[in-house]
Amino acid sequence: MPDATSVRRFIEQFALLVDQHAQELTELDAAIGDADHGINMRRGMRAVIERLPADGSAPDVLLKSVGSSLISKVGGASGPLYGTAFLRASKAVAGKAELEPADVSALFRAALQGVVELGKAVRNDKTMVDAFEPAVDVLQTSLADGKSIADALAAAKSAAQAGSDATIDLVARKGRASYLGDRARGHRDPGSASTALLFAAAAETLQ
């Protein structure tokens, strides 16, 4: 079962993937947004790592710290969106030292709900929700079917990537790209790309 050590590795792996893909995220954002998604997420995740509580902190303490750091440091919409996601995730696993399959399910479901409540985006708005929601749906179904956490997260990772791929053909109805109208079609949504990284990090670490 994932514990505080795996949750810490998840956070560190997300930071690493964001760092490695920062240029790509910024280029995606340059096409249909304000060219800062990679820069903002990298700044945010660096602050997350700097401020991460010491070893021995429980999963919910770690996740809460991530949320607060992102809200403070990111500077774009992704700060409050990812920040709220992590704060909600923290609440969903409050007091747990080890995460059972149902806890993993609850963690990601709560994170998604935080994003949706704050950003009010629905599927096909060409936002991070297009990657986040299918990933959480697949995760929840797989775990309910008795699959292992590793297998369920691997399926969620694929679903997030597929959801992100599907944003390419969409016209944006939320976020900066919505100012572009039909010209946003043909470009991947940057937020969906960073969400795919979030699930990739989870699949690699939360076991």
Binding site: I71, A77, S78, G79, P80, L81, G83, L118, K174
Partner: peptide
Amino acid sequence: DLGSAYLNTLAAIEM
């Protein structure tokens, strides 16, 4: 002004 100003204002109100 633009979108994320709104989201960060909501976050600020929470604080």
